[in-house]
């Protein structure tokens, strides 16, 4: 997901001043990313929806204390991350996700491996493949999974992810590399093929 940073900064400033319409626009921009991020960490879909609500309500309440409105997205993910952590600590949630929430486990036929000469941008990711990817993600340690979701599904950079996770950018890079290795093995059926265009 790409976003117009200037627009987010302006909307966040207006929302901080109390403009509900601006906050709704921010919600629309970030709800899918936040929900997917939370969904990747907790098993129950209903709980993920509740935590998504909690994240935005907490953000609205805390916005007056956000000094750098340009850091809104990372700050929002920090809130979501903390809420997930609290939920896990309380014992109401497990730090797991359910691949079948994304794609049902109905034994759908798996797609063919990447064809010879096919480039990444030519890949059409079917729902079945998405399911396989989520199942592969489930096998990752939570911190690697968080980094993968923020980087690949939300398009966040290393520095921004590092701020959310409160680690150095090099640590994020390392987590992404380890995750990439593990996922490459689990998804070998789809990613092994020609090296053309790489």
């Amino acid at each position: 997901m790409s976003e117009d940073r200037d627009e987010v900064r302006e909307l966040a400033a207006r929302a901080r001043a109390g403009e509900v319409g601006a906050f709704e626009a921010l919600y629309q921009m970030h709800q899918a990313g936040i929900y997917t991020f939370i969904r990747s960490q907790v098993r129950e879909a209903e709980l993920a929806a509740d935590l998504t609500q909690d994240t935005f309500v907490r953000a609205w309440e805390s916005l007056p204390r956000l000094r750098k409105v340009g850091a809104f997205r990372g700050w929002l993910y920090q809130i979501a991350r903390n809420l997930v952590r609290d939920e896990v600590k309380s014992g109401r949630a497990r730090l797991e996700m359910l691949a079948s929430a994304v794609v049902s486990e109905q034994g759908a036929e798996l797609p063919e491996p990447a064809a010879e000469g096919e480039r990444p941008e030519d890949l059409v990711v079917s729902e079945e493949v998405k399911g396989e990817i989520w199942r592969a993600l489930e096998s990752l340690p939570a911190e690697q999974r968080e980094a993968v979701v923020m980087h690949h599904m939300e398009g966040m950079g290393m520095k921004e992810i590092a701020e959310v996770m409160r680690v150095r950018p090099g640590t994020v890079m390392s987590r992404l590399a380890r995750a990439r290795e593990a996922l490459r093995k689990r998804l070998s059926e789809y990613v092994e093929g020609s090296d053309e265009g790489m």
């Binding site: 990444p120 990711v125 990817i133 290795e181 996922l183 490459r184 998804l187 990613v191 092994e192």
Partner: peptide, 9 residues
């Protein structure tokens, strides 16, 4: 293969 994995994600 590693790059394709990233592209899939």
């Amino acid at each position: 293969a590693l790059k394709r994995t990233g592209a899939l994600l």
